[in-house]
Design a protein around this nucleic acid. Structure first.
Lengths: 254, 254
DNA sequence: GTAAATGGTATTTTTTTGGTATTGTATGGA
DNA sequence: TCCATACAATACCAAAAAAATACCATTTAC
C-alpha cells in the first residue's frame, strides 16, 4: 500500500534533517519514518520516481538513500514490484544474515523462506567440533540440522554445531539460532566463513532434489564472541551458483 | 562524520595554544583534539577550506598544519575525499615465536632434538588460517616451518601459523615458541590436537628421507588463551607409527 | 501476449575535496 | 643594502564523491 508522499517527505522533514549530502538527508528521513512507525512492516514505499519528483531530486539520489537502508536490512526491494519495509530482526541476526545472505537473498528475490528440521540433538563433540570450537572431550555439543526451503523448493542443507555451554538444549530453537543465542546473552561479534563449490553426493543431492554431482555451494562458518571464543560452527550446502571466497564481518557490539 | 568546527577550532583554543607561527598553533590544536578524543579514529576532518575560513587563515596555512600531522601518521589524507584521523598504531612491538612439544617429547625419550628452519615469514592468512585463528582478511599471519631432527635423523616437518597480532615478526623465533610467547605475555592455557595417519607425498617424504607413500603421523594442533581465543595453529607430519585420536591438553601456567 | 509500472544499471555532468605551483611579505644575517 | 629563508596568500590542477540523465530488465495488470 502506497503511503501518502507528503506524510513522509514533507519539506520540513527534508530540510530539518540536519546537514550533509542530499541522499543522506533522504536516508535519515526514511529511517525516521520506519522507526516512528509512519511506515510499518510490509508497507510499500512510494515508487522511486514519485519520491524523486516530490523531493525535487534525481531518482538516483533517491536510490542511493534506499540502497543504504536495504543493505542495513530495513527495506527490501523487489524488481518490477516495489520497495517494502522489511520485517524487523534482531541486530545479531540481521548482521549475520548479511554474512550468510540466505535470508537476505531470499527476501531480495521476494521469496518465502522456511525450514524443515532434519535433526536436533546433543552429542559428544566430534574431532572437528573439538578443534574448531575448542572443546574438551568430556563436554557436549548441540547439533542442529535443517533443510532450508524457499518458495517450497529445498535450497540448502545446514548443519550447525554449538558448544553445549552456550546452548544446552537445542530443542528450544525454532527458527533463528542467533535469536535464541541472543536470548541467552550470547552475542557473537564476528564470524568467518569459507565458501566453495562442490559436487553433491547422493545423500545431499537427494535432500535437495538435484542429481548427484550437481554443483553445490559449501559454506563453513565459525562465529566468535568478542573475547575470541568460538561459539558456533555451521556447515551449509546450497544448491546454486559456484564461487569461492572468504568473507569476514565485524558485528557491532549492539 | 565531520566534527563541528567550533568544537575544535574555537578562538580560545587557537589563541591559547601558545606562541609561534599560525600553522604551529593550528597543528597543536588539531593534535590536542585527536589526543583528547574530540576527534576519534576514523573521523573526517572538516574540509581544509572550511577550517581556513573558520580560523581566518589561508588554506595553505591549514594544509601546512595538517602536513605535519600526516607525516607523523596521526592524520590520513584522501584526495577528493577528505582528511581523516588515522588508526592508532600500537607501539608495543610484539615478538612471538613458536610453540611445540617436540623438544620436550624428545627429551623424555632421551633423544637430542634440534631444528632446521625451512621458512619464516609473514603472510596474508589462508582460508584455513582465517577460519581456525579467527582472522580477518586484512590481517597478517606468521608462518614458521621447520624440520625437526632427533639424534641427527629428520623426524618431522612442522608448519606453525600464528596470528600476526601475537607474532608480527617470525624471525625472532629461534628455538622454543612457547618460551617466546611467554616473553610476550602470551600464554596459551589449552591446546586441542588431532592426530591421524597419512601416506606421505613426495615433497614431505623427501625431506624426511622416507619413501613416497610411507606412513606418516599428521598432527594438527590449535592452542588457546584463557579467553578462548586461538593463538596458534600447527600442522606437523611425523615419521613413525600411525594412530588416530583427539587429545585435549591443558598447558600449565609454568 | 502486450503495455504500463517499477526497480536496475551504465554513463555523464557537476560539485566537493585535497594537491600544487606561483607570488607576495616579512625576517634575519652576510 | 642584499639575499636567503620561512611564512602566508592567491590561483589553478586533479581525484573523488555526489547528482543527474538516459536506457535496460522484471514484474504486474489487462
Amino acid at each position: 500500500m502506497t503511503e501518502d508522499l507528503s506524510a513522509i517527505f514533507s519539506p520540513e522533514r527534508l530540510s530539518g534533517g540536519g546537514t550533509g549530502p542530499l541522499y543522506v538527508k533522504l536516508r535519515r528521513t526514511l529511517e525516521e519514518a520506519v522507526k516512528v512507525g509512519r511506515l510499518k512492516h510490509g508497507d510499500a514505499l512510494p515508487p522511486e520516481r514519485d519520491i524523486a519528483e516530490f523531493a525535487a531530486v534525481s531518482r538516483v539520489t533517491v536510490r542511493k538513500a534506499i540502497d543504504d537502508l536495504v543493505s542495513e536490512g530495513i527495506l527490501v526491494r523487489r524488481h518490477g514490484s516495489g520497495t517494502f519495509v522489511a520485517k524487523p530482526v534482531s541486530k545479531v541476526e540481521q548482521r549475520l544474515s548479511q554474512l550468510t545472505s540466505f535470508t537476505e537473498d531470499m527476501a531480495r528475490r521476494g521469496m518465502t523462506a522456511r525450514s524443515e528440521w532434519l535433526h536436533k540433538g546433543i552429542h559428544t563433540p566430534s574431532p572437528d567440533e573439538m578443534m574448531i570450537l575448542g572443546l574438551a572431550a568430556d563436554t557436549r555439543v548441540s547439533r542442529l540440522s535443517r533443510l532450508r526451503i524457499a518458495d517450497d523448493q529445498p535450497l540448502a542443507i545446514e548443519h550447525a554445531s554449538v558448544s553445549g555451554e552456550f546452548l544446552p538444549d537445542p530443542s528450544v530453537v525454532t527458527t533463528s539460532l542467533y535469536a535464541e543465542l541472543e536470548k541467552r546473552q550470547v552475542r557473537p561479534v564476528r564470524a568467518v566463513q569459507r565458501i566453495s563449490a562442490t559436487n553433491m553426493k547422493e545423500a545431499d543431492a537427494g535432500l535437495l532434489g538435484v542429481p548427484v554431482g550437481a554443483a553445490g555451494l559449501s559454506i563453513e562458518r565459525i562465529s566468535y564472541l568478542g573475547s575470541g571464543r568460538a561459539v558456533e560452527f555451521t556447515r551449509s550446502l546450497y544448491r546454486g551458483d559456484a564461487y569461492d571466497f572468504v568473507a569476514e564481518l565485524t558485528i557491532g557490539a549492539n
